[in-house]
Design a protein around this nucleic acid. Structure first.
Length: 493
RNA sequence: GGCGUCGUGGCCGAGUGGCUUAGGCACAGGUCUGCAAAACCUGCUACAGCGGUUCGAUUCCGCUCGACGCCUCCA
């Protein structure tokens, strides 16, 4: 008996605009694809927010007992600056500007990406394929789309024929656009194009002679279009139809729309059952943008080495901050917000530590079973982590009350409480305890205990000057003493 | 200009046709303490504006204002 059998989850499906009960294609198995980064610069904090949302989805599905194959790609070719003939591949452009090999660019920023995600305690995806590793699959896919009459070749480049496709299919159904509207609203772009219509998009681009990123194909030496890789790789690892496809809201159009079109054009089926889109991250009420300087990268946020925030924030604090809003809402990154989350996070973690120390009694004054169900209900409702966290704080309150003697808990209930708290805090939310001192570093704990004893003696002798000195100087190095009824404990911040 | 998402108390951030003033932070009072801190108890009762539907709307519909996203590269 797996947890998923008793915990049906609902997912907000961008395709239908409704929350739907999640039913995987194969019972007990979930195929999930998330559009990964284009590795031509340092990972953007907004990217991190999106990937963190899906990291949490991945974690919860796993917790429920699903066997999840989570595919998150690395785009290392094909992502054009724009779709016109002058459009340059982002990686190639960066390589040209820095006068290094494109693969050096890819390597540098892939490493950066992985480092940040590791620091933030992400689970690695099951498969992390690259576009350049799947050129053959992409060429095959193009051939299939051409065979089916939905693409045409001009001067060695191949374009998807959106107008033709729309005669038999519905282009725009994900982003709720109509082709006629797109035609009227397409801006006139300079430079001539080989495309029959501005709405068409590139499947294969012929490389100019000076272009260093190039692969042979039936049409020309060139490189694949951006939208194609996701279709090729999701098909290869998850099949022609799979359960969940995620990405940032800004990818809905055109990227995801084009993925649907490519899949339908090649295989005649819509690829994805549940489309999930994570909302944007802002900073101080405005979109992050390099041009206005309203930008902060993950390393700067973690190190405190920036002029936007008052201090450095621990990885788990950032995770906690993001988990306190739902993935479908715009989230505003502010110093005040982070400070508030930081305090809340430490309160939660103090509760987790206390959970190991409280004693059980004959009976419980709280209903642990219904509390536990509420936690699951929250996550089952489209991964509502803010509600989950509200319930976790309820538990912290219980834990503190039990310690104070204002509540009691039976040993069976205490076990349930522990198991559930551990599962949600550590496994699902991916938070990490920062209180390394009490459990991890026995020597520090021992040393502080000595000081605590000295302070107790001083207090017994009414030598408050000394006792306060011990307390204040420990506080200065980040060790906070907490006096309770049963003695003094400490925490390290 | 078109399409889409949204506008909640001092701040962040959930949610709902008529009790759940979610939860966190901040603030005020109390208990505890040698004094603090921590913890616990109590208080702080909002839903952009204007109309409409309804016995009743913060939640449904329309309009206005505003924010954000997409329409051109972007998670």
């Amino acid at each position: 008996m797996q947890l998923y059998q008793t915990n049906p989850i609902k997912i907000y499906n961008s395709l239908t605009g409704q929350k739907e009960v999640f039913k995987p294609i194969n019972e007990g198995h979930v195929g999930m694809y998330v559009c990964g980064p284009t590795v031509y610069s340092n990972v953007h904090l907004g990217n991190v927010r999106t990937f963190m949302s899906f990291d949490m989805v991945f974690r919860y599905l796993k917790h429920l007992g699903y066997k999840v194959r989570y595919v998150r790609n690395i785009t290392d070719a094909g992502h054009l600056e724009n779709d016109e003939d002058a459009g340059e591949d982002k990686v190639a452009k960066k390589a040209r500007l820095e006068q290094i090999e494109p693969m050096e660019v890819v390597q540098r920023y892939t490493v950066d990406f992985h480092n940040i995600l590791n620091t933030l305690n992400f689970l690695p995806p099951s498969i992390e394929p690259t576009a350049t590793g799947h050129i053959i699959e992409q060429i095959e896919l193009i051939s299939k789309i051409m065979d089916n009459g939905f693409a045409y070749e001009v001067n060695g480049s191949v374009y998807f024929d959106v107008h033709k496709f729309n005669e038999s299919n519905e282009y725009g159904k994900l982003s709720k656009r109509k082709l006629e509207d797109l035609i009227h609203n397409t801006r006139a772009l300079d430079g001539q194009s080989d495309k029959k219509n501005p709405q068409d998009f590139a499947l294969w681009k012929k490389a100019e002679p000076q272009h260093i990123m190039r692969w042979p194909s039936p049409w020309s030496d060139g490189f694949p279009g951006w939208h194609l890789e996701c279709t090729a790789m999701s098909t290869k690892y998850l099949g022609e139809q799979f359960d969940i496809h995620g990405g940032g809201m800004d990818l809905k159009f055109p990227h995801h729309e084009c993925e649907i079109a490519q899949n339908e054009a090649a295989k005649g089926v819509s690829p994805v059952n549940y489309w999930m889109h994570a909302n944007m991250l802002e900073m101080n009420g405005q979109r992050m943008s390099k041009s206005t300087g309203n930008i902060i990268n993950p390393n700067e946020l973690l190190s405190g080495n920036n002029d936007k925030m008052s201090k450095a924030y621990a990885p788990s604090v950032i995770r906690f901050f993001m988990a306190q809003s739902s993935y479908r809402s715009v989230l505003d990154l502010t110093d005040d917000g982070l400070l508030a989350s930081e305090k809340g996070f430490y309160r939660l973690m103090d509760g987790m530590e206390l959970l190991n120390k409280i004693q059980s009694s004959d009976s419980s004054t709280i209903n642990v079973t219904s509390w536990k169900q509420k936690c699951y209900d929250a996550m089952n409702d489209d991964f509502n982590s803010p509600i989950l966290i509200a319930h976790l704080f309820e538990a912290v309150k219980y834990i503190n009350q039990i310690k104070e003697g204002a509540a009691s808990i039976s040993s069976e209930d205490l076990e349930v409480l522990k198991t559930t708290m551990y599962a949600f805090v550590y496994d699902v939310l991916g938070l990490e305890s920062t209180a390394k001192a009490s459990s991890g570093s026995d020597r520090l704990a021992g040393a502080v205990d000595v000081l605590i004893k000295l302070r107790q003696e001083a207090r017994a002798n009414k030598d408050f000057a000394l006792s306060d000195k011990i307390r204040d100087e420990l506080a200065e190095v980040g060790i906070v003493l907490k006096d309770g009824k049963d003695g003094t404990t400490f925490s390290v911040n």
